[in-house]
C-alpha cells in the first residue's frame, strides 16, 4: 500500500471525517451536530429484514416495575 497514493489520502480524509461526524453526533446540540447525527443515522440504519441486531429479547424489553424490584429486593 503506497502511503502517498491518491486513494490512500482519500481514505485518510474519510477516516478523519467520520470521526468528526461521530464527535458532532455525540454532542448533538447545535444544528450541525444534529445534522451529523441524522446523517450517521441514515448511513447506519438497516431495513428490518437485514438488521442482524434485531433481537426479541432486547426489542420487547420494557424493563421492570419499581414496586416489583422493591419486593424482589426485600425477598418477597
Amino acid at each position: 500500500m503506497s502511503g502517498n497514493s491518491r486513494g490512500f489520502m482519500q481514505s485518510e480524509f474519510m477516516g478523519k471525517l467520520m470521526v468528526a461526524m461521530a464527535a458532532r453526533s455525540s454532542r448533538n446540540r447545535s444544528l450541525l451536530d444534529r445534522l451529523c447525527r441524522r446523517a450517521l443515522n441514515r448511513l447506519t440504519a438497516l431495513p428490518p429484514e437485514e438488521d442482524f441486531m434485531r433481537d426479541p429479547l432486547i426489542d420487547n424489553d420494557e424493563g421492570f416495575d419499581p414496586e416489583e424490584l422493591d419486593r424482589y429486593q426485600r425477598g418477597e
Binding site: 453526533s25 455525540s26 448533538n28 447525527r37 450517521l40 443515522n41 448511513l43 447506519t44 440504519a45 432486547i58 424489553d61 420494557e62 424493563g63 421492570f64 416495575d65 419499581p66 424490584l69
Partner: peptide, 9 residues
Amino acid sequence: VRVRSSDNP
C-alpha cells in the same frame, strides 16, 4: 427500572 441502548446511532 430499565436499561436500553443509546440514542446515538
